[in-house]
Design a protein around this nucleic acid. Structure first.
Length: 204
DNA sequence: CGGAAGATCCTCT
DNA sequence: GAGGATCTTCCGG
């Protein structure tokens, strides 16, 4: 299968310029295929109330994708997935953790799975209860804990507080199967920065 | 209205 | 690598 290989794809990351995405540039970035967005998010700098880092790992989800929360249409939980491109969709997972997504086309989203910590590192260490840099944000639940993300900041655009997202220069990308799902599990829609030490799990 | 499943993480072996 | 924590959501009856 495709996903059995490490794919060191060409760097198709879209460098858009300096400064945060806002208004039209935010819409243009996210109003694209969720795979393209998930790849271009790699290297982008994300902060929540000034705490965060560069995105190292993402996954793409689609409306016709059995693994997606949008597969059976809108519900109370997934309402934010049908907001504008660049909207934030947060949900509770396994009764304990939060997960962060960015909306692309309606019902499509990029799950933010890992960050390389850069700003507010002491705050993140305190929230996570560890001083180990590589495990501060190495998973979707961990990064939400480190960045102080919960449902109270669901369903709002990324160019509004507490969020800031800035685009990145191109980075080398690897891809593989998505993690932790049982339906449509073979789709190679997980993406990461090649060689990053800040991943939820290595790509094989 | 009950119950199983779930886009996870941590600890222990 | 296995198992437990923990609880919301949604589907089936």
């Amino acid at each position: 299968m495709l996903s059995a290989f490490i794919m060191t794809d060409a760097t198709t990351n879209g460098a858009i310029g300096v400064g945060a995405l806002a208004g039209e540039s935010l819409r243009k970035f996210f109003e694209r295929d969720a795979i393209t967005v998930s790849r271009d998010l790699l290297g982008c700098h994300l902060t929540v109330d000034g705490v965060g880092g560069r995105i190292t790992e993402t996954e793409a989800y689609f409306p016709d994708d059995e693994a997606s929360h949008s597969f059976r249409g809108p519900t109370k939980r997934n309402g934010a997935m049908y907001g504008k491109p660049g909207n934030v969709y947060i949900y509770r997972i396994y009764g304990m953790y939060w997960c962060l997504n960015f909306v692309c086309h309606p019902g499509s989203a990029a799950l933010i799975r890992a960050l390389e910590p850069e700003t507010g590192i002491p705050v993140m260490m305190a929230r996570r209860g560890t001083d180990m840099l590589t495990s501060l944000c190495s998973g979707p639940g961990k990064l939400c804990q480190a960045l102080g993300i919960d449902i109270t900041i669901n369903d709002r655009l990324l160019d509004r507080p507490p969020y800031v997202i800035a685009p990145s220069a191109p980075v080398p990308i690897v891809s593989g199967k998505r993690i932790g799902i049982t339906k449509n599990a073979e789709a190679p829609w997980r993406f990461g920065i090649q060689g990053s030490r800040y991943l939820s799990k290595p790509f094989r």
